[in-house]
Design a protein around this nucleic acid. Structure first.
Length: 195
DNA sequence: ATGACGATGCACT
DNA sequence: GTGCATCGTCATG
């Protein structure tokens, strides 16, 4: 199953979040390889869809495979992929390894340091030109384009970032050891309590 | 009408 | 490591 298959996003958010690592994501030809994601679902107190449908989160109650784009801290945009499954969910795209049209991203971000272009959910939206205008747009057609991973990557797993709820749920996924993550993954100490 | 609160990023120590 | 700008969205009066 490739990201071009319509059923790719019909699965649950955790499955999709893992499957997205290594996928190349482009917006109008600009972008890179997904190296960090987080899963959210409707029964998750940290999810925007927890507590029912509102004007902002309406896209998450629609069909899977669409972009849910929201503004955070009055300053930044964040891009999610709406998923199917039960309960319904979505995946936050947190970081990319820049591969396509670096110059365009550098211009939008105001830096040429590749590690600073897409290493965070707000940064990658700025670099790719994703805004609220993309909210509800289908991810399998222009301006969006997805390409299946070209190779297998080791997966890192850890707790999600920036939350005040469900802080221990290990639904953050990443390409292990990538220098393009928003933050390193915590190293699990051998013999540590399972908590 | 108004207040609380962010799925962040950046400057600074 | 810490502090905080900034404003749309939502809940409440």
């Amino acid at each position: 199953m490739t990201p071009l298959d319509t059923d790719f996003f019909a699965r649950d958010a955790v499955t999709v979040a893992r499957a997205l690592i290594g996928v190349r994501l482009l917006v109008d030809g600009v972008g890179g390889v997904v190296v960090e994601t987080e899963a959210y679902d409707r029964e998750d107190p940290a999810s925007h869809s927890f507590g029912g449908e509102t004007k902002r989160n309406a896209v998450m109650f629609g069909p899977p495979g669409r972009a849910y784009v929201y503004r955070i801290y009055g300053a930044h945009w964040c891009l999610n992929a709406v998923c199917g499954g039960q309960p319904r969910g979505a995946v936050l795209i947190r970081a990319l390894e820049p591969t396509d049209c670096l110059a365009a991203m550098a211009g939008r971000r105001g830096t040429t340091d590749a590690r600073l272009l897409c290493s965070g959910p707000g940064k990658l939206c700025q670099a790719l030109g994703v805004t609220g205008a993309h909210d509800g747009a289908a991810l399998d057609r222009p301006p969006f384009a997805l390409h299946a991973p070209d190779r297998v990557r080791d997966l890192a797993v850890g707790p999600r970032i920036g939350l005040n709820k469900a802080v221990d749920t290990p639904w953050r996924f990443g390409a292990a050891g990538s220098p393009f993550l928003s933050r390193p993954f915590p190293r699990v100490a051998a013999g540590a309590p399972a908590a």
